[in-house]
Design a protein around this nucleic acid. Structure first.
Lengths: 179, 179
DNA sequence: ACCTTATTTCAGATTTTACCGAAACACCAG
DNA sequence: CTGGTGTTTCGGTAAAATCTGAAATAAGGT
C-alpha cells in the first residue's frame, strides 16, 4: 500500500493541508494525492483503508474530484467495483481546476459586478468613486477571465514554452501594439 | 456612510463570501471591500459601525490586510486615530495577494517536495512512480513560482499589454526557442 | 426473481473556525 | 498622572464545515 511509504504519506498529508487553505476539504485533497501517486486504479474501499476515512466521505470526495475533471472512473477487468485514476499531466490538472473554480466562483462574480455596475449607472445618489471602482473591478476580473479562456486552449507545448520564457516574453511584444 | 448604498452593500457582502471560498475570513474580505470602495481613509471605529463587527475583529482584519500589503495606515490631519486606505490599483492588489500566498503556502510546499524528492532518491523500496511523480510535482510548482517571480516585476503597462494580447502572444514566439 | 456487492444519501455528531466582548496592556499628548 | 486611542489576548459562543454511520438505492450475477 502506497501509504506505507513515509514519503508518500507525507505528501498526502501535506496535500490535504494545502487543500484546506485553498477551499477544498482535507479529505478531497488527500484522496486526490493518493490517486496521483498511484500507478494503477484504486477502488473506494482501498482508499478508505489507505487514508482511514469513512466510506461515504470517500464517495463524496471522488464525486467532487470527478466534478473538477481531475479524477475519472475506470473499469478493471474481473472486478465489479469502480476504480479511480487521477490526471497525471499537471498542466492539464491545473487548467481543469482553474476552469472549474472560474465557473463556480469567478463567473457568478462577474455577473454580479456587471449587474451592480449597471444599477449604479442610474443611481445618482451613489458616490462617484463607488460606481467607478465597481466598474473597474468588473472590467479587471473580466479581463482576467478572458485571458484565461484564451490561454487555456493553447497547445500544451506552446504553454510550456511561454512559461519557460518567463519575463522574457516581453521582448517579443512589438511596441505600441495592444490589440 | 458607504454601506447605506445598496449596491455598495451588495458588493461588500459578495466580497465577503468570495473571501471564505478562497481561504480568507469573511470579516477580512468585507473590511477590504469597504476600504476599496471608499475615497477617503477610514478609522477602525467607523469600520465597526459600517460592518457591524467587533472592534477586536476589525483590528485583526486590518492587520491581516496590511500583512498582504493591500491596505495601509495613513495619518489624517487633526485626528489622532489611525485611518486606513486600500490599494486601488487592481493589478498591484492582485500581485501582492499572490505574492503573499506564494510566500505563505507555495514556497513551503516547494521546500517540502524538494525534501521528499531528495529522500526518495535514496529509497529503493519506494515505488518508482511515487518518486517520479513527487519530482514532477516539485518541478511543476517550481516552474510556476519562477514564472510568477519574473512576471511580477514587469512594468505594469507591459503586463496590461500581455494580458490584452491573450492567446495571441503565441504568435510572437519564435519557433524552436525555449530558453 | 433473489441474493450479493457497490454506491449514494442524509441526519446527526464532531471538529474546526470565526467571531464577540471584556480585560489587560501599550502608547502618546496634554 | 489622566484621558483618549490602539493592539493583543482569551474564554465563551455561535456558526459552519466536515465527517461518520446507518439506511436506502442501484447494479451484478446466477
Amino acid at each position: 500500500m502506497i501509504t506505507d511509504h513515509p514519503e508518500a504519506k507525507a505528501f498526502i498529508l501535506h496535500w490535504g493541508e494545502m487543500g484546506t487553505q485553498w477551499g477544498v476539504s482535507r479529505s478531497v485533497a488527500q484522496v486526490h494525492a493518493l490517486l496521483y501517486l498511484s500507478d494503477r486504479p484504486i477502488d473506494a474501499e482501498a482508499i478508505v483503508d489507505a487514508l482511514g476515512l469513512a466510506r461515504s466521505n470517500v464517495s463524496t470526495a471522488l464525486k467532487e474530484l470527478q466534478g473538477y475533471g481531475i479524477v475519472r472512473r475506470v473499469h478493471v477487468e474481473g472486478d465489479r467495483r469502480d476504480h479511480f485514476v487521477a490526471e497525471t499531466d499537471l498542466w492539464e490538472m491545473l487548467m481543469r481546476i482553474v476552469q472549474e473554480r472560474k465557473k463556480r466562483e469567478i463567473d457568478p462574480t462577474i455577473a454580479l459586478l456587471g449587474e451592480l455596475a449597471e444599477r449604479l449607472r442610474g443611481d445618482t445618489t451613489a458616490p462617484a468613486q463607488v460606481r467607478e471602482r465597481v466598474v473597474r473591478m468588473h472590467e479587471f476580473i473580466g479581463t482576467l477571465g478572458t485571458w484565461y479562456e484564451q490561454v487555456r486552449v493553447l497547445p500544451k507545448p506552446t504553454l510550456v514554452t511561454l512559461m519557460k520564457l518567463g519575463g522574457k516574453v516581453a521582448r517579443f511584444i512589438p511596441k505600441g501594439k495592444s490589440g
